[in-house]
Every structure is written in structure tokens, then in C-alpha cells.
């Protein structure tokens, strides 16, 4: 892939990638753009670029960099990446009241999932990738992806059930 082809493709893919990153980065669109830009630069410098022949493969490679960076950053410094993120506990009534609106939507539930589970469910249920592709993006096995997805969906189910009963 030449630099011209790469630039054209990345330019067209960028909105989709930023949309994806924006789904789990709450620091604003600028943070999502930074993450995507960082991932693109990393891909351009890597040797893997020679093997990429189509836009879908390029998307997967950039998403892989975005997701792995996100997991790494969140493990190292969660607050710097996501300053507005708070883990709400049901034992704290004031916090529960404050976050009531946010908890009403699915994105609120997704935000409470562990990062790998959240990424797995976004890649599968929103991006529509196969298990094998998700395993490649997250750098894990297909079996592990199924486990992550199953746990994430069960958690969402529990949240929905508890809200339904209220």
C-alpha cells in the first residue's frame, strides 16, 4: 500500500474510527481523535502495513491499536484518560440519584463494564465483527472473546432485569 492510498483510506475511515473510540472515551471528541491519530501513526510505522490490502483490514489494524492503547492506558492511569468516569455503587444513594439518567441508557451500563468486556461487546454488537476478528483486535483467543462477551451480556441482562423490576 502506497502512502497516497494509505492517506486516502485513513481519511475516509477516520469518522467511523472516531465514532467507535468516542463510544468509550468520555474525555470528549478530541481524546477520541488523538487515540485514532496515535493508532494510525503506529500502524504507519509498523511492518504490518505491507500486508494490508483492503479497507476492512486497515480498519481492523487501527482498531486493534486503539483498543490495546485504551486497555493499557486505562490500566495505568484511568483518570487521565477518562476524567468524568466514576464507578457508581448502589450503596451510595446520592450518587445513585445523580446518575439515574445516565443509568437509563445502555451506554451507561456499558461504561460500568470492565474495559475488555466493554470493547468485546462494542466490537461485536455495534461494529459487527466476527469472533475471530475480535480476538485479533484484542490480542486474545476466540474462546476468551466468547467468555468476555458472555459475561458482558449477562451483566447487561442483570442490569436490565433489576431496572425492569423497579
Amino acid at each position: 500500500m502506497t502512502s497516497q492510498e494509505f492517506n486516502i483510506l485513513v481519511g475516509k475511515l477516520r469518522p467511523r474510527l472516531i465514532h467507535f473510540a468516542n463510544g468509550f472515551v468520555k474525555g470528549g471528541a478530541a481524546t477520541a481523535e488523538d487515540m485514532v491519530q496515535e493508532a494510525v501513526i503506529k500502524l504507519w510505522r509498523s511492518n504490518e502495513l505491507q500486508e494490508i490490502r483492503n479497507p476492512e483490514a486497515l480498519t481492523v489494524q487501527i482498531l486493534k491499536n486503539v483498543c490495546l492503547d485504551y486497555i493499557k492506558l486505562k490500566k495505568n492511569n484511568m483518570e487521565a484518560l477518562n476524567p468524568n468516569f466514576r464507578v457508581y455503587t448502589e450503596n451510595d444513594p446520592s450518587v445513585a440519584l445523580e446518575s439515574k439518567d445516565e443509568m437509563c441508557n445502555i451506554n451507561g451500563y456499558l461504561a460500568q463494564l470492565p474495559e475488555d468486556q466493554m470493547l468485546a461487546i462494542r466490537l461485536r454488537d455495534i461494529m459487527g465483527y466476527e469472533m475471530e476478528e475480535i480476538a485479533h483486535i484484542l490480542g486474545t483467543t476466540e474462546g476468551n472473546v466468547r467468555t468476555l462477551l458472555s459475561r458482558a451480556r449477562q451483566r447487561l441482562r442483570e442490569k436490565l432485569m433489576s431496572k425492569w423490576k423497579q
Binding site: L13, H19, M127
Partner: peptide, 9 residues
């Protein structure tokens, strides 16, 4: 929403 972003692409 994602498909709308990528349809033109």
C-alpha cells in the same frame, strides 16, 4: 449511525 458514517466511504 455507524453505517451512516461509513456509507459514503
Amino acid at each position: 449511525m455507524l453505517n451512516l458514517t461509513t456509507r459514503n466511504f
